[in-house]
């Protein structure tokens, strides 16, 4: 890699240093390209696959990672509207509802609690915080089965609430907001507001909330991704096909397609459906880059 850059026969010390630096840069870039390729290939497969018909996925002119001669994307999307009465779009809508309600709800609760923990020295605060930190280490899947039994006791099983209510819990969100509030909101600022006669709620909404915006966006993204990705909980608490989020729904299609019968094999719809379902979140991440890139490391900076 270095040789083609090295043209002078007797390089001075300086150029040798520069060229070794250059070669390192080329090496680094090559490494990054290979990594990027590895991370993108499965998504590329989805993009290519979504343009193929059901049989085209198995035998096609293009192979698995390139387009076939046929271009079936429109037919596949139409298929998503037709198969089982367009249930795919109901699943997608459910996913949106769960992610939105869970994400926004968890963020609101976390912002209030994190701010309260950071800015008020109430009695029991230390103990509260210790319990909170311990709960970050409680595996949430351990809660799914007892939550299922409890929810079925109060008749909430197989309803949207069974997915939304447990998703409101985000101890890590509270922790992040608390860490961020401590540095981002100066006590002097709050005290100045109090001297001017502002109430605590007014201080929170007018002074603190705008300062918390970067942390809020991060927590919102984390909580939304968490509800959007959740699989164990909806799998356990939902029975009606109409209530499933898109993740559980597509998994059902895949299981049916594997189990066999010709009419149930909808590989093209699974691939297209998977592609359509990941577009919104990827778009959100690309659009909100400047917020989350710094924010994701919040927890580690003290």
């Amino acid at each position: 890699m270095t040789t083609d850059l090295e043209t002078t026969q007797a390089p001075s010390r300086r150029t040798r240093r520069a060229s070794s630096k250059n070669s390192r840069r080329i090496g680094s870039h090559a490494f990054l390209l290979i990594m990027a390729l590895y991370f993108v290939i499965p998504l590329w497969f989805l993009i290519v696959g979504s343009t193929k018909s059901n049989s085209g996925l198995f035998v096609g002119s293009g192979g698995a990672l390139w387009f076939n001669d046929e271009f079936n994307l429109v037919e596949n999307i139409r298929g998503l509207f037709e198969h089982q009465g367009g249930i795919y779009w109901i699943w997608l809508r459910n996913s949106f509802v769960y992610a939105f309600a869970g994400g926004v709800g968890a963020t609101v609760l976390a912002v209030f609690a994190g701010y309260g923990l950071a800015k008020y020295r109430f009695r029991g605060r230390g103990a509260y915080f210790t319990v909170l930190l311990g709960s970050v280490m409680v595996p949430l899947t351990a809660l799914t089965i007892p939550t299922f039994v409890l929810l079925s006791d109060i008749g909430l099983i197989n309803t949207m609430w069974a997915v939304i209510l447990p998703s409101l819990l985000s101890p890590i969100g509270v922790y992040l907001i608390r860490v961020y509030s401590q540095d981002a909101i100066p006590d002097e600022m709050l005290d100045a507001g109090r001297v001017d006669g502002a109430g605590e709620l007014r201080l929170f909404f007018r002074v603190s909330l705008p300062l918390l915006r970067p942390a809020m966006v991060t927590v919102l993204l984390l909580a939304t991704v968490f509800s959007w990705n959740n699989f164990f909980l909806p799998l356990a608490v939902l029975r009606d096909t109409d209530l499933l989020p898109v993740t559980v729904g597509l998994n059902q299609w895949q299981a049916l397609s594997n189990a066999g019968a010709g009419g149930e094999q909808v590989w093209n719809l699974i691939v297209t459906g998977a592609l359509v379902s990941i577009i919104p979140l990827i778009a959100a991440f690309l659009g909100l880059q400047k917020y989350w890139q710094g924010g994701l490391s919040l927890g580690s900076i003290k």
Partner: peptide
């Protein structure tokens, strides 16, 4: 590009 898979649900 390396980060993008995080936005893809584990099921997908």
């Amino acid at each position: 590009l390396i980060f993008v898979p995080y936005a893809v649900p584990a099921v997908i």
